[in-house]
Write a protein that binds this DNA or RNA. Sequence first.
DNA 1: GCAATGATGAATATACCC
DNA 2: GGGTATATTCATCATTGC
Length: 604
Amino acid sequence: MDNNLSGEDNDNIDWDTEDELEIQEIQDMTFSSCTDLRTTGQHAVSCNGEASSSSVPSQSKFIQQFVMMGFREESIAKAIKQNGENEGLVLDALLTLKALEDSREEQPNTSSQLKPYISSDDSSSEYNENFLDDVYEEESWSSDSDSIYSAKQCYLKDESSSLSEKEHKERLLVNMGYPVEDASIAMERCGPGASLVELTDFIYAAQMAREEDAYLPEDVKPKLGHILNGSGGSMKRKMYNELCKRKKQRVICDEETIRLPKHMIGYGIPTESVSTMVKRTLPEQAIGPPFFYYENVALAPKGVWDTISRFLYDIEPEFVDSKYFCAAARKRGYVHNLPVENRFPLLPFPPCTIHEAFPLTKKWWPSWDTRTHLNCLQTSIASARLTDRIRKAMEDFDGEPPMRVQKYVLDECRKWNLVWVGRNKVAPLEPDEVEMLLGFPKNHTRGISRTDRYKSLGNSFQIDTVAYHLSVLKQKFPDGINVLSLFSGIGGAEIALYRLGIPLKNVISVEICEVNRNIMKSWWEQTNQKGNLIDFDDVQQLDGDCLERLVDSYGRFDLVIGGSPCNNLTGSNRVSRDGLEGKESSLFFHYVRILDLVKLITSR
DNA sequence: GCAATGATGAATATACCC
DNA sequence: GGGTATATTCATCATTGC
């Protein structure tokens, strides 16, 4: 497959030709996404019943010959359904399936066996692709891709539910900013089982491979013309090959799932000695300008960080726990192209233990509560009823309660980040205390409801942590910096830069929540910023045309920073932990889309 | 209508033991 | 190595109260 992508033929890529390549690739990816072939295959037949319903004496004989060859009836029925009673086609499909199963048996219960499938010539024929796509509908990066139940769900779907899912995905793609036509074509070509990643890949590849004006309106073409035309199509080829490389990497990454480090200190923390810091080499295509910085929860469902890394130029995420910067844990992954040498922390260094942060609690803190750090600050707090239950449980005993009560109380305190504020009395943190722990100015979020304050703060950066990473920019931008801030929230990135003493020349901020935008504006005014704050409420507004105009007006972006919504990634979500395909978390792909556009515009 | 409240587990990693 | 226990988690939604 690489041969097809690296040769001269790519200079004059024809969309139809690429279609074939893309279809092959994406179907191969779908192909590779299966997890338990035998189980899913069985469900495919036993649940839809179509194969048996079409049984007639002549077909029974037709089936029998394949049974005699040693194939399972379920697989035969499915192959017939996909290919009709064409002996050659059915046999081909069955052989392919058999090869897959044999390969899987050699390496059970891992995804590493998927690689040979992709290079399998047997999968190249259309009927086999259809057959296998249909049999193996599961998402390659679904968090529950190993679940038999999940697979079963796929096969219990009738036509109507399939259509509904198709519409849902298509709508999602459109909401992500892709043209309706592209979304529709991607759905049609990739099939209903294609994951969102595959669909976006397909569309992206299509747009890259089309004429030079990917995402850019007519009036912008001439401005970028010299980039694309002047290089005789090399840029197009370069980007296309880069995309294909990302896809290829996907297979490799399936084998090498990113694992969280035991001690989340990333490339170093202020208190860690320099000798233990690790130097890194960035992939060439990741090197700025612009610098970029992406953040999300470290404990995302399996495979999410592989996908994030793959879409962000294969940069290894830097996992850091903010407990090294403040009195609360905050395990986050950061993908960025910033230098990692010569970082420096914000001063004064914030209190790093509970007792340092809240000295008044020390008086009431029982000896058996050995916590020194709070857990992650969330978007909601414990109820008064819970703290009252804890008080009553404690008051039943004079002095030290029995172990079972201690355990109950400690479990609740850890779960809800409660602190001791009186005799037998625990309480959740106040909003201004959360502000302090996260490094925000006191009263930063004051003026909105307590619920909203907790929510906005729970979704924000830990300033000291992010500032430590961004500190390397101070030397590079002594006269100020142009920032494209995506999913800005309450302005954590801007505050980090401001506290580092980096002048904010122009900040293009995108934040969907009006309450958060108002907090940001208020901070901007209160701190007498000299630069310009331009805000948008939706990342979809930032298309090529819009970005081009912004660059023309304010100059090129020096930093693209943001953390896309984690709602569908966090373990706290009991309802819709859907991974990167989730309603909110899929906005990550907008970050990628916008970053790619900015890089393109910046390189002209 | 808005804000506050309270009930709702599962996915994942890690530690520990055998 | 495998099984079990334990810890942790930028949340969601229906209900209640004002």
